[in-house]
Amino acid sequence: MRADAVSKSYGQREALKAVSFAAEAGEVVAVIGPNGAGKTTLLSILAGLQAPSSGTVSVRPAEVGWVPQQPAIYSKLSVAENLRLFARLERVADHDAAVERMLALTGLEARADDELGRLSGGNQQRVNIAVGLLASPSVLLLDEPSSSLDPRQRERLWELISSLAREDGSTVVFSTHNVGEAERYADRVLVLADGELLFEGSPAEMVRAVGSPERDFEAAFVRFLHERGH
């Protein structure tokens, strides 16, 4: 997946300033940055939710699995009904098989007939991710996927995401506020601030780029932003 000089303006405000990057198959990329940096705007443009003011994205929305920050599923429908509905809307050839596959992947077979609103936030997020994976997309975009989860649920979520990249060769791009998660699960990080892409590289490269005595990625990230006036 490639983004070339993607910019987005809302009136006079520039939310994204000519952001370019590429992500390979099987690669996990984290987009980090302070609040208002443009992370969600970048992901929503990559997902096809909104059009960029200028620049291009190489993938079509149909090729991208989109997992928004808050579960975008129906609380009055059961787990299986949600999956079946989106499988039909995605025009998945064998939607029943896709539903079974996602139930197995998320470990929610036993809760298939439960109304979604009765599930925990973690389980709802797993269904949310499963919906994003129904059409077996080559690219998976996740906006703050672990923000509402407890540590145990978070661990299981990252196991799932890592396995998708490792075993299925999916490209995974996620945004997060949790710098530790980015360091732990991402092959590469993109640092955005005020809509500008300030850094692109591995967490270790970030630490080296700061050139400070700190070996801690979070401290290096904070120092990196501070040095650039953020």
């Binding site: 997902a47 939710l49 929305p61 989109w66 928004p68 808050q70 975008a72 809307l89 919906v131």
Partner: peptide, 13 residues
């Protein structure tokens, strides 16, 4: 309210 609108209109409907 269910945050499904964005998911629906990005190509599904």
């Amino acid at each position: 309210e269910e945050h499904a609108f964005g998911r629906l209109v990005r190509g599904l409907v």
